[in-house]
Design a protein around this nucleic acid. Sequence first.
DNA 1: AATTGAATCAACCGCGTCAGA
DNA 2: TTCTGACGCGGTTGATTCAAT
Length: 329
Amino acid sequence: MRKPEASGKNNNNNNKLRKGLWSPEEDDKLMNYMLNNGQGCWSDVARNAGLQRCGKSCRLRWINYLRPDLKRGAFSPQEEELIIHLHSLLGNRWSQIAARLPGRTDNEIKNFWNSTIKKRLKNLSSSASPNTSNSSSEPSKEVAAAIGGGFISMQEQSMSPMYIYPSLSSSSSSNTSMQAMFLNQIMDPLPTFDHGLSTCGASVYFNNDAPPCMTHIGVSGDDIYGNQGILGGVNIGIEGELHIPPLESISIEENAKTEDMYGSNNNKYPYSNVNRINSNCNNNTKAENMTTGVGNLWQGEELKVGDWDLEELMKDVSSFPFLDIFQAE
DNA sequence: AATTGAATCAACCGCGTCAGA
DNA sequence: TTCTGACGCGGTTGATTCAAT
């Protein structure tokens, strides 16, 4: 942790704002102010509470630490499971994920994901078939698919993972369009293949004409999380084969396009991903194909990206078995 | 008991968005 | 229409804690 700067250090210069860890006195000031006055302009909060902090810092401290409704302590297995599921749907939109987990902050969830979950992915990556390992520190796609359980992550990347929706065999009508879209997202980056697709339970098969880069994934929930682990109750470990086209078959241009459509590590516009997909729909036949099965989601001028993707996705989340636990709180 | 490497997590930074002037 | 400041978000950093040796 960052050391709190010596309390007297900045006393000689009121214009200097403190940085680093918050002292208990500062916490008290902010807490008292917030409880008495409520949230207003954060720069005013900082000033009126007598804190030599920027408003931004006050906001962060309040949201991540002082807020009375915060739930401290370790994540429960149910929370873990929900986080993984939400992440499979939303990607790194931590604030959106946090909004579905009362008492948890985006920072907390982000840290949890980056430490615990990524660690598991990494461990799996190293224990997976040597053929599938790569030099990157990132987990392999195959392993990411495994740890996702039913939520198969085809790309474990920092901004915009691309996922196959879990219950491909589900009969839920509300899922159908999203599943179609997810599947199209899977298919679209691989345009050079005649990629028929069949699903069977949680297994996904890419039946390509090209020689597949076949990876066996026999990872069960227990393998990942133990008997009490987060996937234990869901029975969605992947026990099938992923036939993944060799990456080298995909042209650079197509890779670039794919990254553009689905985001990349360089994506600094997390809220614009689907906007860009939408714009692609106007001049890209593949993107048009993407809309197949999505139906009205893509029609209508009132379509607002952030709305449809989150709300539609949340319909799926709302059926998530453990959500009641949080809603009941 | 000391050391060391890994894990955790609080906080900062930079950027995009938005609202008001 | 443009500018500006506040806010919110995701990525990253780095100090502390923990566990293994």
